[in-house]
Design a protein around this nucleic acid. Structure first.
Length: 569
RNA sequence: CGGGCCGUGGCGCAGCUUGGUUAGCGCGUCUGACUGGGGGUCAGAAGGUCGCCGGUUCAAAUCCGGCCGGCCCGACCA
């Protein structure tokens, strides 16, 4: 490819709308241009990188036995109503109506479509297992598209769907995807972690997220400094604190705490640390009152509470709940709860005694609250929000919270879709059984952004060679020098014939512009041919990742570039 | 959706507070000259319904209202 006959518009200045590095650099380097919020045109350079990611994904999917097909983006709403996702997805679903007033939507994922086609065409256990996948654009009307390609309303995704006879088969298919995903992200050279995560709107049970480490990541994960524990932050369980022996329990005493409706206020008033307080959070779970007890310095992780109470929906008390059910906000204590309420306590509550907690009347707290003497705990559960510095449940090491971008997510769905859609096959014994399904996504366009986050510096992008739009650039530093032009062409031709993905910068620009662009776009290997070098019989080489420069004779330049490329990340 | 910031030639910005002649600057673009290994210099030129609609006013980029669009912070997801 010749840059003189290509379309790679670069920006000299940072676009005003871009804050995060990947967004800024993908715009500046000419990979994408905005069309609307969260919607982008993929320019030629960006498309080349995206195609390279797609290729890696396809190769590994095929190697794992998956079969590619292509499903429509424009979908009828009915199957979505059957699985309940038409409502569940809510505002995030792009809905439209056709001329016959039929409800349609733009596919955010394609479980419904693939399940129906498999049910129609693969009715026998002999047809199973099967793994069907596609690479297609997905549409989600995100509340807040942001960070360029990191969270668009349109994004390119590889989605694979597995169908098995039984749960054991489903787990085997799942493991095959897990292994394939590792190979894919390894080949993309991403720094990533794999954690168990929340099922979200896809539903199902066991699932893992592949998270690319990134400062700007929106997803938090937790890891132990000793490397033996890794989890989604919302699912992470800290090791509970040691039980502190306070000796003989103090008596329960009521104390006057005017205008102290917060933990901090009570703590300041009584001169006691927040962890001595017992925080009583009230929730409504399908009409029932649920009290959650955590130490005063901790927060409740509502995602954990939802899982504990699943499938009953949970919401925090609002002002009306407090009033109608007779609780005083800011002064709630578990000793005032009757048998109608469920009392859940985090494991960390086991470690304490002589709690300070609400007296269930305005401006009063109690001290010396102890269970079971003063209040009842129905169940201990893991309910606290994990925070930096908590102790690892495996070895007690320091936990820290890392930020990441979810680039892949795999699910064991079971019969979440095959059930409601009536998708069954005939098993060996002649009975109809629903398919045991799995669903496996990879954000192709997001990988590009995540890679840009991980691989860049002040000069621009420096994507790994597996993802860079070209592997090598040959720059003619003096475009109007005939001998330079001739040598540039010769080296370019030699690299092409060796099968290197090479581009030549034969534009009429000045050398400085070409150098700056080469760094900005981040070609892994740069070869510079100029008047000085040609006179001396040499070309200059640069490895973008390290900035290391070297020289080679003009005749060896292509060879040297190939060698340098093999050493490039 | 709640909160904050912002819409001025292709891009980045100033001007708006305190309304008043032809709306400026840098980059980019075009022409010419000089130049030629890290976004070069000089001379000249083109390019703007100041997001849209309405209001106030003798007069609006500037003040007021509404709407649209974009970005950033919070609850969902690849």
């Amino acid at each position: 490819m010749r840059l003189s006959a290509f379309f790679a518009p670069t920006l000299r200045e940072d676009p005003a709308e871009a804050e995060v590095p990947s967004h800024r650099l993908l715009l500046r380097a000419g990979f994408v241009r905005p069309v609307a919020a969260g919607v982008y045109t993929t320019l030629p350079l960006g498309l080349r990188s995206m195609r390279k990611i797609e290729r890696i994904v396809r190769e590994e999917m095929e190697a794992s036995g998956a079969i590619e097909l292509r499903m429509p983006i424009l979908l009828p709403a009915d199957p979505w109503k059957a699985t309940g996702r038409y409502e569940l997805y809510g505002e995030t679903l792009f809905r439209l109506t056709d001329r016959h007033e039929r409800d349609m939507l733009l596919g955010p994922t394609q479980e419904e479509v693939v399940t129906e086609i498999v049910a129609a065409e693969l009715p026998s256990y002999r047809d199973l297992p099967i793994n069907l996948y596609q690479v297609e654009w997905k549409y989600r009307d995100e509340f807040r598209p942001r960070f360029g390609l990191l969270r668009g309303r349109e994004f390119l995704m590889k989605d694979a769907y597995t169908f098995d006879r039984d749960e054991e088969g489903m787990r085997r298919s799942y493991d095959a995807m897990l292994r394939a995903y590792h190979r894919i992200f390894d080949r993309c050279a991403l720094s990533y972690v794999v954690v168990e995560a929340e099922p979200g709107q896809i539903g199902g049970d066991v699932n893992h997220e592949f998270m690319a480490r990134a400062e700007v990541g929106e997803d938090l994960f937790v890891e132990c400094a000793n490397g033996d524990y890794l989890a989604d932050r919302k699912a992470a369980t800290p090791m509970p604190p040691e039980h502190v022996d306070v000796g003989e329990p103090h008596p329960l005493e009521r104390v006057h705490t005017p205008n102290a409706a917060t933990i901090n206020a009570v703590s300041a008033l009584l001169g006691l640390p927040a962890e001595r307080m017992l925080k009583t959070m009230l929730y409504d779970a399908g009409g029932r009152t649920v009290a959650v007890l955590v130490p005063g310095d901790r927060e409740v992780e509502e995602a954990k509470l939802e899982r504990v109470l699943f499938p009953t929906p949970v919401r925090p008390f609002d002002e009306d709940d407090f009033r109608v059910r007779g609780f005083v906000r800011g002064y709630v204590g578990p000793q005032g709860l009757d048998g109608e309420a469920t009392v859940l306590a985090d494991h960390s509550v086991r470690g304490g005694a002589d709690w300070v907690t609400g007296a269930n009347e305005a401006d009063h707290h109690v001290t010396g609250a102890n269970t079971p003497r003063d209040f009842r705990i129905d169940r201990y559960e893991d309910l606290v929000a994990l925070r930096d510095g908590d102790r690892c449940p495996v070895d007690g090491g320091q936990l820290r919270i890392g930020r990441s971008i979810v680039v892949g997510h795999i699910y064991q769905l079971g019969t979440r879709y095959s059930g409601p859609l009536g998708a069954t096959f005939v098993d060996e014994d002649g009975t109809n059984r629903p398919y045991q399904m799995g669903s496996h996504g990879i954000g192709i366009s997001r990988i590009l952004a995540a890679a840009a986050e991980q691989f860049h510096d002040d000069q621009g992008l420096r994507l790994p060679k597996a993802l860079a739009p070209f592997e090598v650039v040959v720059i003619s530093a003096n475009a109007d020098d005939d001998r330079v032009a001739a040598e540039t062409e010769r080296i370019y031709g030699e690299l092409s014939s060796r099968g290197v993905d090479v581009v030549v910068d034969d534009r009429g620009e000045r050398a400085g512009v070409k150098f700056a662009d080469a760094d900005l776009v981040g070609y892994p290997v740069h070869i510079v041919v100029g008047s000085r070098g040609v006179a001396a019989g040499t070309a200059d080489l640069k490895l973008r990742a390290s900035g290391d420069r070297s020289q080679a004779s003009l005749t060896d330049a292509a060879e040297a570039a190939v060698a340098l490329l093999s050493s490039a990340p």
